[in-house]
Nucleic acid binder design. Sequence first.
DNA 1: AATTTCCGGCGAACCGGTTCGACGAATCGC
DNA 2: GCGATTCGTCGAACCGGTTCGCCGGAAATT
Lengths: 399, 399
Amino acid sequence: MVAVRAYRFPMCSGKCAQGIDTRAVSSYLPFTRTGSTAPDQACEGVPVNIGEIAKRAGVSRSTVSYALSGKRPVSDDTREKIQRVIDDLGYRPNASARALANGRTSTIGLVFPPAGDHYTGMQLDFIGSVVEAAATYDYDVLLSPSGVDSDRSFQRLLGERRVDGAILMEIRLQDDRVDHLLAEDFPAVCIGRTARPEGDWWVGLDHTALAAACVHHLADLGHRRIAFVNRPERLLRAGYESAHRGLDGFTKAAAERGLTVRTYTCEDDAPSGQACVERILHDDPATTALVTLNEAALGGLYRGLAHAGRHVPRDFSVTGVVASRWAETVTPQLTAADVPAAQMGRLAVELLVERLDHPDVPPRHHLLAPPISLRASTGPAGAGRPADTHRPAESDSTA
Amino acid sequence: MVAVRAYRFPMCSGKCAQGIDTRAVSSYLPFTRTGSTAPDQACEGVPVNIGEIAKRAGVSRSTVSYALSGKRPVSDDTREKIQRVIDDLGYRPNASARALANGRTSTIGLVFPPAGDHYTGMQLDFIGSVVEAAATYDYDVLLSPSGVDSDRSFQRLLGERRVDGAILMEIRLQDDRVDHLLAEDFPAVCIGRTARPEGDWWVGLDHTALAAACVHHLADLGHRRIAFVNRPERLLRAGYESAHRGLDGFTKAAAERGLTVRTYTCEDDAPSGQACVERILHDDPATTALVTLNEAALGGLYRGLAHAGRHVPRDFSVTGVVASRWAETVTPQLTAADVPAAQMGRLAVELLVERLDHPDVPPRHHLLAPPISLRASTGPAGAGRPADTHRPAESDSTA
DNA sequence: AATTTCCGGCGAACCGGTTCGACGAATCGC
DNA sequence: GCGATTCGTCGAACCGGTTCGCCGGAAATT
């Protein structure tokens, strides 16, 4: 069976003769225009729909449809005739009409963090990779804020059938969004996992193991008093899985190694990071290292240490779980478990597409635990001067 | 005229009696479910559409539609009856069907940078604010990669009528995307402006003025030899407006003040920033300051300076055009013209909505020129030791 | 009491695709 | 040379909303 190249065959490239190609047109809009360089017999602003194509090609609407989709054979010359008309008029099938007719929107929803005051860099990487991967499979991505009034936009997406499936970010251990989706059997994939992720589709990071790995790394270097800088308290309270599992992994590993620890929460910005370090050093000046999950605060953490006269890594070691792109931004570069955000976004899309294509396959997931990348922010404890003789650093005259 | 609260009246809150409220339902999907806690007479998985509502309420489909939209009066008790059925069944009107019928998708497209290898922080702020502002007006946001094969996804968005309007980012001085949209009279708003933005809708930053302001700031502090760190060469070549206008402003202002300058391009990442500083100091060790537009390289620029033993701001001043969130990340915090990304995103949405609501109003735009925020990265020239006696800094043992 | 106005609701057509059953012509088998 | 297939195409129904024209009955007008 032969048919024209088209939208439903994202994988075929060029010579594939499966459907009519509606891509190489000179105009972006499906209207024959009034004058100017209109591709065809420029008349009125006649909307170009499948009926118009059919009329001009001298065939029926269904034939055009079949020529486009390739779902039934169409003779070579009819197909060519149709192709020609389509090219001339710059026709592109209306997405809403198609969605209505076949029940698929070719769109996936990306549900944004509910704690939407602002976004961290990691989220940016997720978004970028999701969009890109989705395009590979010929899906568009619809962004849902789910910030204020999260329920409402959630309903817009799902209830109004704007999307075929959804990818959820910033999962909580108890997440009613996930519960709902599970109950409705709506095709969704989580980036992150709930407390009981068994029946669910997700791609997650083993925060417990990663935080523990950070602790062991520090303990191996001889650090005995270390701090943990978590995400904002609000997120911890809300039950964010990364915050909880990270904290867990940290606490347990530290207990295992007999370390003295303190744990802190910190807002997602640099000034808070700076303040957090001040608190840490105030609470226990003998602290020689910290582990953080808080990417956005990282710059502030460094600044706080510099202000306190602690040189990294000589006097103080810093490590954590951070996307490499940001770990490389600070000086010295951060030794950290690199969050493979781009990979996770891609995997999430792949899982979702699989779930959409095969509605009945059992749940699948990916649990990632990237190794710690040794960069330059950790070193042996006690390498520098004694921790209690710190002198104030040169002022930074913060505005 | 009275009608039920609904989707088309985003502004009305609670007591507004303009349309039936389809929001407060317990289920996200418009299906009566098989068993469990189905809201109503749980039977088969009957899809809930407007006909089903009509049947159960004992009225015609058109009456339900009018009750929903409020476009014609409906008596109080019919409306209540319909409302009740809707609540019971958790009905939400199908977005595709509505889009098909009334020609509006209630979705705006956000066209991503064509140079899509990765995204900078500023873009994240744009995206976030656009999504949030759009939600305010009851619009969803569809992301278009326009990266590889940009033409194709562009056509998806516009040709297939997936969106009512579009917001374009990363504008080039000669931008065929903009030309096309202008020619087709498609409702779009640019974040940035082309070389000839007269007939167009846009919200932009006065990069010329901002870069010039940076130069004047440095010149006022006594700097005579300064460098300019631009966005990647590829983007400059492609004609990105920020890169060009920024370079222009820098060059002209420097000429005006009689400064000695060198200009550089730099990839959007920290390692490139570091390498760029090395080049700068190699090319002219007497350089005492730099101006940058390259947010993503900022951390690397600082590291390069530290490695070269230049203390900021004592030996070397750094300034540029950067979103405040990132300016505050580095130590010392960057004195910079703060890019008001969130505001720009919001303004772009407002312009677009206005354009969509009133198709015939003449083009509008906003040109922003935020002042330089004095932080801590610039200081008087010659405050430190002579520039040529620099000693190598302590190693950072980059892995 | 007869006539006009207004109100509320109904049926049908339409938006632009997809898909199913059927049908005429060409091809096949024997 | 004739019935059974196969192939290519067509018409009609359908997806789930919106909207226009119309109509019956109650209220207002004279």
